[in-house]
Design a protein around this nucleic acid. Sequence first.
DNA 1: TAAGATTACGCAAACGTTTGATAACTGCGT
DNA 2: ACGCAGTTATCAAACGTTTGCGTAATCTTA
Lengths: 339, 339
Amino acid sequence: MAEKQPTIKEIAKRLNISISTVSRALHNHPSIGLKTKTLVQQLAQKLDYEPNQMAISLQQRKTFTLGVILPGLSESFFSSAISGIEEVANMNGYTVLMGQSHDDIEREKQLMETMKKHRVDGLIISITKNTKTFEHFEFFKKANIPVVFFDRIPDMNDINYVACNILSGTIKAISYLLKARHRVIGMINGPKTLVATAERRDGYMQAMQKNRLKFDPSLVFNCDLSKESVYEATQKLLSHSRKPTAIVTFNDYVAMDAMHYATQQNICVNKDLLFVSYVNLPMLPHLKFRPIASVEQYPFKQGQKAAQMLVELLQNKIENTERQMHYKIIIDSDLVIHA
Amino acid sequence: MAEKQPTIKEIAKRLNISISTVSRALHNHPSIGLKTKTLVQQLAQKLDYEPNQMAISLQQRKTFTLGVILPGLSESFFSSAISGIEEVANMNGYTVLMGQSHDDIEREKQLMETMKKHRVDGLIISITKNTKTFEHFEFFKKANIPVVFFDRIPDMNDINYVACNILSGTIKAISYLLKARHRVIGMINGPKTLVATAERRDGYMQAMQKNRLKFDPSLVFNCDLSKESVYEATQKLLSHSRKPTAIVTFNDYVAMDAMHYATQQNICVNKDLLFVSYVNLPMLPHLKFRPIASVEQYPFKQGQKAAQMLVELLQNKIENTERQMHYKIIIDSDLVIHA
DNA sequence: TAAGATTACGCAAACGTTTGATAACTGCGT
DNA sequence: ACGCAGTTATCAAACGTTTGCGTAATCTTA
């Protein structure tokens, strides 16, 4: 059988007209007569003609494809985000080429290579928690392919990004705890490579300052988000000379692990020890032990914004490269309290 | 700056050799001398040359791209699945073009259109819960693009698919409950469009038969997976003349909604009323109310298998189309008990 | 009715590759 | 000096589109 996909050429031959006429007819070009136009369109319909995107892309040097690289879809944060991305991408006629780095730098680089080969028109990326070198991003810049960073943004200048205001979120979180009379607040923070980690710390400091309280850096521990390192951090906090009555964790997953550990140490979570965290997973209300509050980061919205930004960058490509403009969007976060 | 991406042509010009020589040199073709070969490769390196996949795809009529259409990534089942797909896709040099149907048929069709335009080499799809007409699939068949259905498979002949053995999983689930002396077991099943729904019902029947018990069809209710319809089904079961002591639900989400409803009716979940379901979400152990057992469907593995199947289909494309062969893989499911 | 304007179409180049057929060099034996 | 086999490199067509430019054919209009 192997019916070959019909081409514009085929249609032209059958109708005994030129290729260009067919092309124009299908695009409703004014210079084509109504008769031939309908003739062409009918035949195209009948043959199930579909333009070959490859040929078009080659011709136009544009693939109508957006690359998206995320650490992993298993975190609902990212799967929501990609939904947002996909939505506005599709609305604007783009398709999404997706890849997961699984927090592995090599994979991240490799994915970027593939995407460059596939000539994605632009890239949206949330970097690995271990990414420290940034040459591979320069690559894209050189190739003049716009990149939008998203949520996990690298510590570089001259980049486009959308992120969530973690600083203000943290201030809200800490203030909430302070208002509830907590005075010793521990923090299980993330990997130092992430700006979001620094922001959390800063937020903590600023919140304390605002309330004319002293910030105790020994109450802040970093972890690499693995279960083991969370346990370790929790353990250190629990055996701290100033034993905290509340802990702010990097995200809900960290909180869950920390709570698990604390429970095993016979600590009554949510009574002796409160947790506040980030992300605000949709399952939170269904959990047995849950953080009493969590900073909502609106991943879907972030995804939308990122895609929108990218689409705009693509549309104003020339002007932007001349002006060396960079877009930054910081969307507000909110503390959601789970009574 | 707008540095144009270097092409093979550019390299040829700079080195004063022909285009074809460059192409061959980069492919290590034997008919190119070592001298020129290294010369070319060095320059290519220096210029950060990347072959233009569009041109290659056009030439070879192959895009090295796999289309994946899923109902939605928010369900962890599907996000695991796509991870499995991506893994083996990448291992075999393919990239993944992704789309979510959000259980909307129109979107599903539209996505298939785009993917066809983009000339994906093959498609992996888990259909919408509402998909009843199948012409759009025939389209792909005609175009000779292999399709692998996955988990949610349509009721058609002559298709490739990988799915999970829901029948045996259901038998295990029901048997488990019977062994625990439950005699009145309700079932909140899914939409009738899905084969998996029929399988669940069959499994229920067969398990009863095996134990020489009578199957009561009035204890089985369908729902469309929405919260409201779950509530409704639960309500009907709770007011049934034979009030069940255990309920088997279509999946964990349905179970959660049903439990929520039951709790509101002052029923003590997991004491007066047990739940058994499917999917076995990773969060299950952390939930406040959870099904006492859930049928694990190994989504990651299913994804891997599906991608593997597709890759094989692609490799043996000619032979297969001649022989009209179709692959089917049914992987085993297991009942996981959450003590 | 000839000049100009308009309408409807065709030509051919270009996008960046790959690849079968072909040609130009090299060295060698005679 | 000549042919001959390697070895190495070039030519040109093809993949399926889009689009600027050119040109018949038809239509106005004075």
